[in-house]
Structures are given as C-alpha cells and as structure tokens.
C-alpha cells in the first residue's frame, strides 16, 4: 500500500504497477471573503482594460485625441448624506466634487460642460456642487436637457453661461418636508432659511430677480400636487433664469469662445452682476 489516501479520485484497493501518480489537488474551495485582505483585482492595466470595457459596455475605447473639455452629467437624484435605494439613479456628490477639483487642476482640461437631466435631490449636496462649479477658474457652460428641477436649478445657473433646450422643463417649488406637520415655528424658520439659501444662490448667479423667483415658487394652480411653476425652455429664458435657448452645438460653441477668451486675457469672462 502506498502511504496516503487519495480522497479526490476513486482508487482500487490494490494499486497496479507502476504506483499511482501524486494525488490531484482538489480544487480550492473558495473560503469566506475577507474584506481586509482582498485578492488582486483581475482588471489588468493597459490593453486589458479595453477587454473589460468590451465586456461591460459592449464597446472598445477608440484611440482618439483627448478632448480639451470635460463633460459632467448630472442625472437622476442628487444624492447627499444618505445612500438612496437602488431604484433611484443618482449623481453622487462625493464623486462629483473631487472630479471638479481635478477639472480645475488638470492642465489638459480647458472648459467644463455640465449637462443636466435631474429631478433634484439633497439641498446641501446640490448647493455644494453648484458652489464648486461657480468657483472654477475655467470657463463653464450648462445645458438643461429633459429636466432640471428643484435643486437642479442652482446647478444650472452656477455655470458662466446656461442653455436650455426647447422642450426641457424646470420646476420651481418651495422646499418642504413631505407629509410632516410643522409643529413648532423653529421648523418653519429652519426650512425658510434653507429655502433662502437656494433663492439667494439662484438670483445671484442668474438675471432673475428675487421677487420674480419667489413669485414663481409660490404660484398656485400650476402643479397637481404642489405649489410652484413649471418653466418650459422658452419660459426659463423669458424670466432670465437661463441665458439662452440652445442645444449641444450652441453650448460647445460658447465654451470654445470662452476658452479662447481665457487664453487671450489670462482669466475667464465673469458673468456681469445681476440687477
């Protein structure tokens, strides 16, 4: 008898000559995952990432010259301090804000195009994104496609120049806590303060007046479940909330001229103060 038992392959009790080969190692059973020491990632660098791209997106990355602008897409809910359930499409501020820092820092990027199709979301996260966009030293342009509602409004006006497509809508409505009864005056005052932050940001970054914006916010009879106003493309321009009606072509054209201005003058053209 040989001195071991092969527990993987069935063996006859009396082995024939020559003696059996060393036992086949049983396949390693995957043990419990240890989060502290994960194995190496199987996404390889370089050429392999093309393969990963092909597997995940169904397309290869084409070797093209790098663009000098960065496109940022704000979609779905603007996600703030709470992870939203998976049925929501979200734009995560913890990723967007460092990305904006990278846009500011990266010498290859000369301009930023923000495309909005959002239903709104967290007030603090939205205002933080808006303030970061407004603070960039590179030319920025925004384009509202589909919808730029609620907290999407300050993000849209944060750019140096804003465009809206003809069919896109923007809903302006008061801040509220759905279904909650305001039991103490402090709750109302707090909400009012939050609302003032939004109003002040929007009116100081666009040409709409505070009075007009408040009026639109508290209009009754426009929305089925709420008070407020829906502005369709042209209306948003009429009230001077958005600068111009246009599409991707107009936005890119504006951005290129903004980049040319910046190159010539050493700093970007600032929006003239409203009122």
């Amino acid at each position: 008898m040989n001195g071991y038992v092969n527990y993987n392959v069935m063996q006859p009790t009396i082995p024939k000559q020559p003696p059996p080969k060393p036992p086949v190692q049983p396949p390693q059973t995957p043990g419990p995952v240890q989060p502290q020491q994960p194995g190496p990632s199987s996404i390889p660098e370089g050429a392999g990432s093309n393969l990963a791209n092909l597997q995940q997106m169904g397309q290869m990355e084409l070797p093209e010259p790098k663009s000098n602008i960065h496109v940022m897409n704000i979609v779905g809910q603007v996600e703030g301090h709470m992870v939203l359930p998976p049925q929501n499409k979200t734009s995560k501020y913890e990723h967007i804000i460092p990305q904006l820092v990278a846009v500011e820092q990266n010498a290859d990027i000369q301009g930023l195009l923000v495309i909005l199709n959002t239903v709104g979301g967290d007030v603090e996260a939205g205002l933080a994104i808006a303030e970061t966009i407004a603070g960039l030293s590179k030319p920025t342009v925004s384009l509202v496609l589909g919808g730029g509602h609620s907290i999407g409004v300050p993000i849209a006006v944060a750019a140096d120049h804003s465009f809206i497509s003809e069919t896109a809508t923007m809903t302006i409505h008061p801040l509220r806590l759905t279904g909650q009864v305001l039991s103490v005056p402090q709750t109302y005052e707090y909400l009012d303060k939050m609302q003032d932050r939004v109003i002040r940001f929007v009116t100081s970054h666009s040409h709409i007046s505070q009075e007009k914006f408040r009026e639109l916010m508290f209009t009754t009879g426009e929305l089925a479940r709420d008070i407020g106003t829906v502005l369709v493309g042209r209306d948003a321009v009429k009230y001077r909330l958005i600068d111009e009606l246009g599409g991707v072509g107009n936005a890119l054209q504006w951005l290129q001229s903004g980049i040319a201005y910046t190159r010539e003058h050493g700093s970007k053209k600032r929006r003239e103060p409203s009122q």
Binding site: Q77, V83, D122, V123, E124, I151, T178, V198
Partner: peptide, 20 residues
C-alpha cells in the same frame, strides 16, 4: 437632510429599510 425634488418622497425612499 432635506430633499428638494419633484419626485414624491415615498418613491425616492421606497425600500430604504431593506437596504443592507
């Protein structure tokens, strides 16, 4: 946290308790 959105809050937060 205050949500400023046109979506009904119940739609946004549906399934939040099951999220693990």
């Amino acid at each position: 946290m205050i949500l400023y959105t046109t979506m009904p809050l119940e739609t946004v937060l549906q399934g939040l308790e099951d999220l693990q």
